[in-house]
C-alpha cells in the first residue's frame, strides 16, 4: 500500500530530534552513545535522573488548570568534548523511565548539534526514527480514514436512496 507522505524538512529542527530517536529501540541510541563516549569525553552537567512528572492540562470547557496524572520522566544534560577541544552541550527530557536512554540521547543531541565526530550516524538514526514515526502516523491515519462517517439526519431521504 502506498500512502501519501508529507514532506518534512531535512534535517529536522532540534526540537524534533528526541521524538525521532526515541521511536527506535533504545539499544540503537545507547550503542552509538557508548561509541561516542569511548572516543570523546562526556561530562554530566547535571546528575542524570529518573522519576515522575505531573502532567498539567487546561480543561477545554472552562480553562481551569488541573493534573491528569503522572508520567515517567528521565533527564540528562551532558557536555561532549572531543580530543581537539571542541565542546557541545546536549540534553534530553523523556517520557520514559530509562535513565540510560535519556543519557544516550543527550550525548547524541550534543554530537549532532555541533556536528561532532559520529554525527553522521546520529543523523542516520534520526532518519530511521523519522521513518518509524511516519509509519505510526500512517497507521493512525488509517484508523481515521477507514472509519470516516457522514451521519445523515434520519428522515431526510438520503438513507432510503440505497434501498
Amino acid at each position: 500500500m502506498t500512502h501519501p507522505t508529507r514532506s518534512v524538512d531535512w534535517p529536522p529542527a532540534r526540537s524534533q530530534w528526541l521524538r525521532y530517536w526515541s521511536a527506535l529501540p533504545a539499544e540503537q541510541a545507547e550503542a552509538l552513545a557508548a561509541n561516542i563516549a569511548g572516543q570523546c569525553t562526556v561530562k554530566d552537567l547535571t546528575l542524570p535522573q529518573r522519576g515522575l512528572g505531573l502532567l498539567k492540562l487546561p480543561d477545554s470547557a472552562l480553562n481551569d488548570l488541573y493534573f491528569l496524572g503522572e508520567v515517567p520522566v528521565s533527564h540528562a544534560h551532558v557536555a561532549v568534548v572531543t580530543d581537539d577541544g571542541r565542546r557541545s552541550e546536549g540534553g534530553a527530557r523523556l517520557l520514559d523511565d530509562r535513565q540510560s536512554l535519556a543519557w544516550a540521547l543527550a550525548v547524541l543531541d550534543a554530537t549532532l548539534a555541533a556536528r561532532l565526530p559520529h554525527h553522521e550516524q546520529a543523523l542516520d538514526l534520526l532518519r530511521t526514527g523519522m521513518a518509524k514515526v511516519q509509519e505510526t502516523e500512517r497507521e493512525r491515519h488509517a484508523l481515521l480514514a477507514a472509519t470516516r462517517v457522514d451521519f445523515s439526519l434520519l428522515g431526510d431521504g438520503s438513507e432510503d436512496d440505497n434501498e
Partner: peptide, 24 residues
C-alpha cells in the same frame, strides 16, 4: 504530544506522547 523544555535550548521539545480520552 507532551512538550517539555529542552535542557540546553529551553525550547519546548516533544518528550513523548500519552494516549488519552477527552470529552466535552
Amino acid at each position: 504530544p507532551v512538550m517539555l523544555p529542552h535542557p540546553v535550548t529551553g525550547e519546548l521539545t516533544e518528550a513523548g506522547e500519552v494516549l488519552m480520552t477527552e470529552c466535552e
